[in-house]
Simulated scan of single mutants.
Amino acid sequence: MPYLLGLTGGIGSGKSTAAAAFARLGVPVVDADALSRAVTAAGGRAIEAVRAHFGDAFITPEGAMDRSAMRELVFSDPEKRRELERVLAPHLEAEISEGIRAALDAARERALPYALFDCPLLAERPAWRKACAKVLVVDLAEEEQIARVMCRSHLPESAVRAILAAQASRAERLVIADYVLYNGGTPEALERAVQTLHTNFLSACG
């Protein structure tokens, strides 16, 4: 039976780049961010719960959650952020559970020993972490994270630091890691590191 490898990392760490590298190697990937967007997209399983709790002002004319309006609300009010998390949690957990089952089935069909769960909140969500046999952390020094996000997203430093403050700390992520990929180099170096890990995972189960 294939196992689930959790992948996590802070904003700007290169976690998504690493996940894409695993996908190119044929590893089935469960993308928690994509599933989170899906449950709040038009027709998503959480839309009616969002409407009931926050009102029509937070639903777009197309029937999706208004992410800009919601972002403005929750970043200015921590209690509203917790309310949103509580509203979304059961719907997102159901979506993720289905995604994990499908990914593990795909890994078995491809004769692979593992599937990947790409989740930025593994350090914050013990229940999701418990589903993972092992955890891989993509690591980067905080100042480098800030510089990369400012360059990529054109956000001011204060905004990036606010995002970092809302996430688990670097130390909190590293303490849950079974494997660490330090991403202080080039994208090509990260790709090679992922390929090496993948080869090692295959050999360990060969």
Rank of each mutant, 00 (worst) to 15 (best):
F22Q: 12
R108W: 13
R161W: 00
E109V: 14
P156A: 01
V138G: 03
S158P: 03
V30W: 04
V27S: 04
A111K: 09
S158D: 08
T40L: 09
A165W: 00
P2Q: 03
R51K: 15
A52W: 05
E109G: 12
L116N: 04
M1A: 14
A147S: 11
Y114M: 08
K15M: 08
A168W: 03
A111L: 15
A41C: 07
R67S: 07
E62R: 07
R81K: 14
L7K: 07
E143R: 13
R101C: 10
V175S: 14
S203C: 13
V30S: 06
A42P: 05
S68P: 07
H198C: 01
A102Q: 15
R108L: 15
P78N: 02
A106L: 15
A52I: 00
S158T: 13
M150H: 05
I96G: 06
V149A: 01
Y179C: 11
H91D: 05
L35W: 09
A32Y: 13
A64D: 01
S203P: 04
M1L: 11
F75T: 01
R81F: 12
F117Q: 11
R82W: 10
L4M: 03
R101W: 02
L73C: 06
D66I: 00
C132M: 05
I100A: 00
F117N: 09
L7V: 05
C132Y: 10
I146L: 05
P90S: 09
E93I: 02
L92A: 07
M1E: 15
G9D: 05
T40A: 09
D31N: 07
V160L: 02
A46D: 01
E172W: 04
A64W: 06
D105C: 14
P61H: 08
E72K: 08
V138I: 13
R108Y: 13
M70V: 00
E109Q: 15
A38E: 14
L73S: 04
P90R: 03
A166T: 04
A162Y: 06
L25H: 12
S13P: 05
H154A: 11
A107C: 02
D105P: 12
A103T: 02
A41D: 11
A64R: 03
K80Y: 06
A94H: 09
L122R: 12
P61L: 11
L197I: 07
I96T: 06
M70P: 06
A166R: 11
E79Y: 13
D56R: 14
L35K: 08
F75V: 00
E124T: 04
G6T: 10
E191T: 09
P78Y: 08
A171R: 13
I163A: 10
F117G: 07
T60Y: 03
R125T: 15
A20I: 03
S97C: 14
A159P: 00
P120E: 08
D139M: 08
E95R: 15
L73W: 03
D178W: 04
F22L: 10
A193F: 06
A177M: 05
A18S: 07
E144T: 07
I176P: 03
V27Q: 10
S203E: 13
L121C: 02
P187M: 06
S169G: 15
G185Q: 07
E143Y: 10
E98S: 14
